[in-house]
Design a protein around this nucleic acid. Sequence first.
DNA 1: GGGATGTGCAACTTAATGGTTGCACTACCA
DNA 2: TGGTAGTGCAACCATTAAGTTGCACATCCC
Lengths: 118, 118
Amino acid sequence: MSASRPAADDPRLLDQLFGVLADPSRRQLIETLVTHGPRTATELAADYPITRQAIVKHLQVMADAGMVSAERSGRDVRYRATTECLAEAVGWLLRTGPAWDRRLDRLVASPRRRAARE
Amino acid sequence: MSASRPAADDPRLLDQLFGVLADPSRRQLIETLVTHGPRTATELAADYPITRQAIVKHLQVMADAGMVSAERSGRDVRYRATTECLAEAVGWLLRTGPAWDRRLDRLVASPRRRAARE
DNA sequence: GGGATGTGCAACTTAATGGTTGCACTACCA
DNA sequence: TGGTAGTGCAACCATTAAGTTGCACATCCC
């Protein structure tokens, strides 16, 4: 259970968000979940060089940061990426970078929507 | 000398980038440098609850990630935020979030613009 | 020159993190 | 009903990270 998640403007939320993002395994997990849809921990473990337990731990800190949600069906638990919260991270970046406008416009205009997948 | 900084698409770069961002002191340092301009470590230390050495360490990992640059003048070293690299982070986020388009457009349209455009 | 101020380096402590193994428990199904 | 596959929990280990203290070295300036 995600204990008590910090409020939207709590710096702790950004800590968690960026903290999750700082780990390559976790970014990869997000990508996998985003592109291939919800998965169980054991399914994920099959594709990763680390143990199921390690994956579960990752998923738990991600859930704590609000980046995945777990839904149980029968005996297995399926994790789904909830990427909305990433807006918080983007928000900070946009707020902070001073010379953003041009770059950002470029980014937004660019063909970003061939998404992850590769 | 930032040793060997990873190439633009190296996952290690994202590790570093998000890693830097995951620490509240470091985010604050960036904000300070962005809003108040270049500062020396000792100047910064005056406004922070941590020692100069701690600040220097932070600045070093930030420099390693390409987020600040140090320029020496006489005996003191002045650090300046180089926020361009944040684009890399934003890039990943945009590439990854599947339901981004609407939110992003909203974010872009929102009053983020307290920064000098030109 | 010499004192004040600032930087650089290194050793150390403490705590968090990413990972492991091992095992108990729960649900599915032949 | 019993075996199999999935989840949950806990202890443990190794490494890294954030922060400290202490001191040597460089530079400014009276």
